[in-house]
């Protein structure tokens, strides 16, 4: 996200309250994007794992697989985050 001069000038004219609102909207927008990407990634990965032969409807065993897959994907993401945090504290100490 890069700000052009005009945007910076407009933001500088806002009251503190208005600026807080702008910051709040930026934060929400970032969260929305992170969430959207997560949904997209999980859908893609778990579709590939669980729906090997798409039939006329989702079977209950496919749904069970999707549910487990989603939970495991979030676990995997947790391991990655933890690993990155440990690595950055190792590098800075």
């Amino acid at each position: 996200m890069d700000l052009d001069k005009e945007t910076i000038e407009r933001i500088s004219k806002l009251s503190p309250e208005e600026r807080n609102q702008v910051e709040e909207r930026v934060r929400n927008e970032m969260l929305r994007q992170v969430f959207q990407e997560l949904v997209q990634n999980i859908s893609e990965k778990c579709f590939l794992k669980c729906i090997t032969k798409p039939g006329s409807s989702l079977t209950s065993s496919e749904q069970t697989c999707l549910a487990k897959c989603m939970d495991r994907y979030l676990d995997a993401m947790g391991i990655v985050s933890k690993t990155l945090i440990e690595r950055s504290s190792r590098n800075s100490s």
């Binding site: 992170v34 994907y73 993401m77 990655v80």
Partner: peptide, 13 residues
């Protein structure tokens, strides 16, 4: 985090 999770999911799970 998102990219690493995708890559490592494919490799490991």
């Amino acid at each position: 985090i998102s990219k690493l999770t995708e890559t490592c999911w494919d490799k490991c799970v």
